[in-house]
Amino acid sequence: MTTTEIEPQLQPAGPLHKTREKMGRRFAYGFLILSITPILIGYTWLVIATISTRTEGLLPRNAQGGIGGFTLRNWDFVTDSAIWNAMLNSLLIAVAMVIGVGIASTAGGYALSRMKFAGRKTFLSMTLVLHAFKAEMLLIAIFFVLRFLGDIPVIGNYIGFNTVGGVALVMIALELPLGIWLMKGFFDNLPWDMERAALIDGASRFRVWWQIMLPQVRPGLAALSLFTFIAGWNAYLVPFTFTVGTKVANMPVFLNQLISDTAPTNWNAVAAVGLFQMIPLLIFFIFTQELLLNIYAGGSKGT
């Protein structure tokens, strides 16, 4: 190792200190492993259940330790077009939310952070207060709004009741208070001077927002996109309430349809669909993770 030469200088104290540090580290790791064990067991069980005939998982078959009860029948649904339709709907809702929330939050957050206008303070406190009310309270009112939107010629077919667009619209609205506040916080931390410099350099206000300010809040936007995507992908209550039948159902609603009140439920198939639903989320997370960790080193002091 090339770093061994400088390492002794980095270690501040003698052997006693070292063993202490080692023990502390062991304790920390032990605690972490202990606390995530239930979660790991749960996920492992989920994965095993999807390829088992029994809910409890694979079962021992004989004294030699052979394992039985293996089956891929639970994954039969991948050939069913209904799940792909549900997945497409989930994706449409999530992507529409990421785009809608992203645009509205960065624009709104910037305006609330940087511009002076009447009602700014009231707006800020109202959005926070309204965010405290659960979405369930609004369901009936939103139903009427969607019915009204559905009556609008042409576009009503895309954003009314029982449409993917309608669901996305409602979900965007519910997510916006968080998004706007989050982005406002990020814009608040940017120095005014950078904006002034750009204005003097010849940029318009819109260009300043687009070319100078937005790149600085990219980590924030990535975080918001991730939250929003997860919220959209896992959305259940709103899609369940404002859609009818399987055509516009998204993944969680589809999953719920598998659980029937009248016939016995194949829980292993439910587990498989649940796992299937997680896959795109994992992929999305892998891509945004790097952006989230990408902390910007600023050209301005003190930021």
């Binding site: 002034r196 410099a197 750009a198 003097i200 350099d201 080193a297 301005s300």
Partner: peptide, 29 residues
């Protein structure tokens, strides 16, 4: 408007655009 005044300004915080290179910063105007 500031951009039409024919002025150049230097700030205490430098106010450079951190996502651009040196060339990107100087060439921006």
């Amino acid at each position: 408007a500031p951009k039409d005044r024919g002025i150049g300004m230097v700030f205490q915080s430098y106010a450079l655009y951190p996502h651009m290179s040196v060339f990107g910063n100087i060439s921006y105007p």
